[in-house]
Amino acid sequence: MARMGMVFDLKTCIGCNACVVACKQENSLPDGVFFTKTLSEEYGVFPLANRVYIPTICNHCDDAPCEKVCPSGATYTRHDGIVMVDDAKCIGCSSCAVACPYDQRTTMDADNFLKGLFGTGEITPFEKEGYARYTPGTVTKCDFCSQRVDANLDPACVVTCPTNARIFGDLDDPHSAPSKMIRERNGRPPMPEKNTRPKVYYVN
């Protein structure tokens, strides 16, 4: 059985946010909603200051706190390890958003869909068609573009990344690109102290 995961290469990520916009395109996200983000963190003191660009995404934890707290069974883990939300079952209680230590869940408020991307109340044909997938009042998040994965395609954020800073594949396959990268470059999961066993790793 596969265990799909992602590695972020902090050496090459240029913080361009092409991934973020590709995600917005693929998933028809309303204004201000993100399934992935790139943080920009400065550290050090001049002249030795530096900045690191940190991509963030749902970590599809093996031991997902969001799944554990979900009272309706809306959150579940797929056969390949992708953590999903079934919005037909979601009651919008937001317990998962509170439980997620990575703040990767968003409640889709109805007004997200009313003001439109341009904030004018005018809904573009792109939005009209794309918003149909969402149920207002439910909670949503990144699903690694699960339908693309089913079609043997990488997630939208991965294919567009100019610097190949996002590497996607089966972590159970020791020969997969992410497995090799985690092994060879000492990949670390985010916030390991939370014991959530993320399927997302960072290398530098």
Binding site: F35, K37, L39, T56, A97, Y102, D103, R105, T106
Partner: peptide, 9 residues
């Protein structure tokens, strides 16, 4: 000031 829109740390 916006909260709970995903990705806030």
């Amino acid at each position: 000031t916006a909260k709970g829109k995903g990705g806030h740390h």
